[in-house]
Design a protein around this nucleic acid. Structure first.
Lengths: 137, 137
DNA sequence: AGTGTAATGTTATAATATTACATTTTGAAT
DNA sequence: ATTCAAAATGTAATATTATAACATTACACT
């Protein structure tokens, strides 16, 4: 068995727990403040846990926001690449999965004689809820 | 006439100048150190200039690197959206342009009942040069 | 000249992330 | 069981990136 939640360390479990219970992406220092009761005292402890969780694909970073989000997809293959829909109104974030972005980007890269390895994609706009609300403004 | 280089302010011209003369993306504080001779003394002056330059599409930000790059494309429409190829070996950055990413992403968003507004895409891999070098390792 | 708006200058500080180094835990090989 | 190396941890300090707050200046338009 590879890297399931079972063989995470204490700090890693704590950080992952906070993220999984959050309805939205969290910043590193917000995570820190949330778990100082649980024995984590320094930013470094959070960043180290995040690094590991990102490495094994349990957590993704949203670059444009310096935020971190737990991945809800069992066995997410987005260990390196990430693709998000980010609502500009309510900050809700959805991960794009099971699509063919990889092959599409590979082709785009090829045209520029560039060898695709991974990507990060962040699409901004309105989520379903906010879209509906917006119609009446 | 809209926002051409002509009606930029002194600070904005200075910052844009540095970026245009750089062969690679620059960080805000690197820009600052480079132009302290020219009367710009504080980070804020750099960030304000960058904000404006980004707003008018003369400069783009590379989110994953906290770096800024001058746009080489006359009348670049990427005022908001950006798409980059980033070499993991040499840090060379190329902007993807004139492609149909917009419509592709709109469709992807639609599938999730999400209204596309803009995006940032960063593709990591090997640029042409580094790809060639790599073959002999 | 007076007014409004944008840009500027300056200081301080907030927010995000890493270095350095000493210590402890873990777990596999003997 | 003991040893050993690798991984993880703890702690303090610091580096890096970005913004807040507020006073001042420049300039176009009346």
């Amino acid at each position: 068995m590879a890297s399931t939640s079972e063989n995470l360390t204490k700090n890693q479990k704590t950080v992952l727990g906070v993220l999984e219970n959050s309805s939205e992406p969290m910043k590193a220092y917000t995570i820190l403040y949330d778990i100082q009761k649980k024995g984590i005292k320094s930013p470094l402890q959070v960043y180290r846990a995040l690094d590991k969780l990102i490495e094994i694909g349990k957590v993704h970073k949203i670059e444009s926001r310096n935020s971190y989000v737990a991945c809800k997809h069992e066995g997410c293959n987005a260990k390196t690449s990430t693709s998000f829909l980010i609502c500009e109104k309510c900050d809700n974030v959805t991960e794009l999965i099971g699509n063919n972005l990889f092959s599409y980007f590979s082709k785009q890269a090829d045209k520029n004689n560039f060898k695709y390895n991974k990507h990060c994609l962040e699409i901004f706009g309105l989520c379903e809820n906010c879209k509906l609300k917006n119609q009446f403004i």
